[in-house]
Amino acid sequence: NITNLCPFDEVFNATRFASVYAWNRKRISNCVADYSVLYNLAPFFTFKCYGVSPTKLNDLCFTNVYADSFVIRGDEVRQIAPGQTGNIADYNYKLPDDFTGCVIAWNSNKLDSKVSGNYNYLYRLFRKSNLKPFERDISTEIYQAGNKPCNGVAGFNCYFPLRSYSFRPTYGVGHQPYRVVVLSFELLHAPATVCGPKKST
């Protein structure tokens, strides 16, 4: 009989979030998941669920729940959905087409922007091929755009693959930082360890 609440607040209220290319994953298990708490945590810009209804979450049980978190800019949030393409979905964080879970995003301009520009958040701009779903690539190998090998040196047709967002508070919403948490629900042929409040007794 599990009584402890799932530590969603640790994920959502973390002081620092990860850069999207090096997104963070927390496995959540053996706890009571009260998803209604999430609705009250922040004024969400996005709370979209796929393959599951957000209002039914509190009635369900899962084997595992994974919470992935990272920062992107406002106009990239739409890429965090099944079947999307674009720089983020292709080279940084890719959801599977049959994704079961929820994408939660909110504006973090007050936390993640600086007047002089916050350069701490990076994204991958160049990659030889698209990522597979939930693949994480943290390599910093020089990207070869031409025929000549780069031998690890940046220059003509040889690019450092990561680029930094420079978040400034005066930017338009599309270029402001957004914190994203992706909850993916895993149903294996194994005992369910993460249940809503109704199912945990």
Rank of each mutant, 00 (worst) to 15 (best):
I2S: 06
N151Q: 02
N87H: 12
S166F: 15
G51H: 12
G155T: 03
K26S: 14
H189M: 06
I104W: 12
S108A: 09
K56H: 01
R78C: 02
T3G: 09
L60M: 03
N30S: 13
T15V: 07
N151T: 13
Y39I: 06
T201S: 07
D98A: 12
P43H: 08
T140E: 02
I138P: 14
V115C: 15
P43A: 07
N120G: 04
H189R: 01
S53A: 10
S164M: 14
T63E: 11
P197E: 05
Q144N: 05
P197N: 08
T55W: 03
S139D: 12
N109V: 05
L111C: 13
K128T: 08
G174T: 06
G155M: 15
S29A: 11
F47Q: 13
V115N: 15
N64G: 10
N4H: 11
G51R: 08
T170G: 15
N4R: 12
F156W: 02
L162F: 14
S184G: 04
D98E: 05
K114Y: 15
V153Q: 01
K114W: 15
A192P: 09
S53R: 09
H189Q: 03
V65F: 05
T170A: 15
N64F: 10
T63A: 11
G155Q: 12
F126V: 09
N120E: 07
N87R: 02
N120M: 04
P169S: 15
V32Q: 11
S200T: 05
A42M: 02
R168T: 09
N64W: 03
A192V: 03
F47L: 04
A190I: 10
K114H: 15
D59R: 10
N147G: 00
A105V: 14
S164Y: 06
A190Q: 05
G152E: 11
A154E: 07
P54S: 02
Q84S: 04
P149L: 06
A42T: 05
Y35W: 08
F156S: 11
S184W: 12
V194Q: 08
R16I: 11
L5A: 01
G196S: 04
S129G: 07
S29Y: 10
T193V: 08
T170M: 14
K198H: 02
A33T: 07
N151M: 05
A18S: 03
D98K: 06
T193W: 14
P169T: 15
F62M: 08
F156T: 05
T63R: 11
V37P: 08
K148R: 08
P7A: 12
K148G: 13
K148V: 07
Y159W: 11
L41G: 01
L188Q: 03
P7I: 14
S36N: 03
N130D: 12
Y39Q: 04
V153T: 00
R16V: 02
A154K: 12
T85G: 09
T46R: 08
S129H: 00
F156L: 06
D9V: 09
V194H: 09
V65C: 09
V115M: 15
S200C: 03
R163E: 12
N120Q: 10
K199W: 07
P149Q: 05
S53M: 00
S36R: 12
L125C: 02
I88V: 14
G117H: 15
A154I: 05
N40M: 13
R16K: 05
S129Q: 01
N24R: 02
K132E: 00
N4E: 11
K198S: 10
K199M: 11
V77I: 00
D97E: 09
V173W: 05
G174C: 11
Y119G: 00
S53G: 09
Y39P: 09
F44Q: 06
V52L: 13
I138R: 14
K132H: 04
L125Y: 04
P191D: 01
T140H: 06
K114Q: 15
V32Y: 07
R27F: 07
Y123K: 14
Y143V: 08
P43N: 13
I142M: 00
A14K: 07
D75S: 04
Y171M: 06
A145Q: 07
F156V: 08
F45A: 02
S200M: 08
T201P: 04
N4G: 10
A33P: 02
A105W: 05
F62P: 12
I72L: 14
